[in-house]
Computed example of a mutant assay.
Amino acid sequence: MKNDYRDTVYGVPKKNIINEKKALEERIKIEHPKVKIIYNQINKKDSEYNKQFRNIYNNKCAYCGITTDVISSDLFEVDHFICESSFNGDSINAGKISNLVLSCKKCNRAKKDFIWSEAYSQRLNVDDDSITELFYRDEDYSIRIEQEFIADNIICSFHRKLKLDEEIRRLDYLLMSMYGFYNKYSDDKNIEKILKCIILLQKKRNEL
């Protein structure tokens, strides 16, 4: 099975995101039968639906993989995978849970109203891991485009627009790996030294 560039070797077990999102949508419809735009329910910060939605994604950005270990949960947003402008004012379909993903603010704000053809919606799908066929994590922790897609304008534009090639992505991955190591070996008597390094590095990261 191909490695997911969004995960470190300490990543948590995979979930069936598609099915879990459907279950959440059903719950919302039962509890709020008059609600038409699911996005409005999930997007409410600190609501039970928002928390459950974040948990479905393991509190991890669906695009770059950064987790709440590295940045605050306040820096995560509910993103319209296919941008709202593509729906020509149809907020109901744009706000369906199948079109909503968890994104860090950096990816969401960079992506904005990026538009692609329908064929690319499946290629870029973050819920069934199709996107992991397009990008990979290099040995230096950079997120790179797979060679077979290097000449694809849409995929290259997506990579560039979301700023997946920025240096901070490498630092974020290092921090996620360090947190994963810390959590795995938390009983080791020397692990606090690692934690001090993590905290210092994270402080420097947040100053960037």
Rank of each mutant, 00 (worst) to 15 (best):
T8S: 01
T8E: 02
V9L: 14
Y10H: 11
Y10T: 04
V12I: 13
V12T: 12
I17R: 07
I17F: 05
E20W: 00
K22C: 11
K22I: 14
A23H: 08
L24P: 04
E26A: 10
K34F: 06
K34T: 15
I37D: 09
I38D: 02
N40A: 07
I42G: 01
N43M: 03
K45T: 12
D46H: 15
D46A: 07
S47R: 07
S47N: 06
E48W: 13
E48N: 13
F53H: 05
R54V: 00
I56Y: 07
N58S: 15
N59D: 11
C64V: 03
T68C: 05
V70H: 02
V78I: 15
C83P: 15
E84S: 09
S85T: 14
F87G: 08
N88H: 10
N88K: 14
N93S: 13
A94N: 14
G95P: 05
R109A: 07
A110N: 15
K111L: 02
K111W: 07
D113N: 12
F114A: 02
Y120Q: 06
R123P: 00
L124V: 08
V126S: 10
D127V: 09
I131P: 03
L134A: 01
L134S: 02
F135Q: 03
Y136H: 06
D138I: 06
E139D: 15
D140P: 02
D140V: 11
E146M: 11
Q147I: 06
Q147R: 14
E148N: 11
E148F: 06
S157Y: 01
L162Q: 02
L162H: 04
L164Q: 08
L164H: 02
D165W: 06
E166F: 08
E166K: 15
E166Q: 10
L171A: 10
D172Y: 11
Y173V: 00
L174F: 14
L174A: 08
S177R: 04
Y179I: 00
Y179L: 01
F181N: 11
N183W: 10
S186T: 04
D188C: 14
K189C: 09
N190C: 08
K196V: 00
I198E: 01
I199G: 02
L200I: 11
L201H: 07
Q202V: 02
Q202D: 08
K203T: 13
R205M: 05
R205G: 01
L208A: 08
